[in-house]
Amino acid sequence: MAVKVHLWESLARFTDNKTELTIDADTVDELIYILSCDYPGLIEFFKSGFSIAINDEISNPDFNDLLPENAEIFLLQKLKGG
């Protein structure tokens, strides 16, 4: 499945200055794996914990989630609260 991934600008240092990437991945796990292989600078970001929006649904990531075709994905800082 081709999905579109949006990254913060501060992560673009690790992704050849791209903040939008089109990746072929079936699951969240695969997506993270491919991104980590292509852009090893992102590994630390993934390790630090993050939240994800898949077609506008924001959640903590479930690595086994299937990604719908053409899904729009935002990687966000981990959701917290007070």
Binding site: G41, F45, S48, Q77
Partner: peptide, 16 residues
Amino acid sequence: FSVPEGSSPNVASYIE
């Protein structure tokens, strides 16, 4: 990892 080279030493993380 997020802090660009050359930032002040007390910067712990950076986001943009």
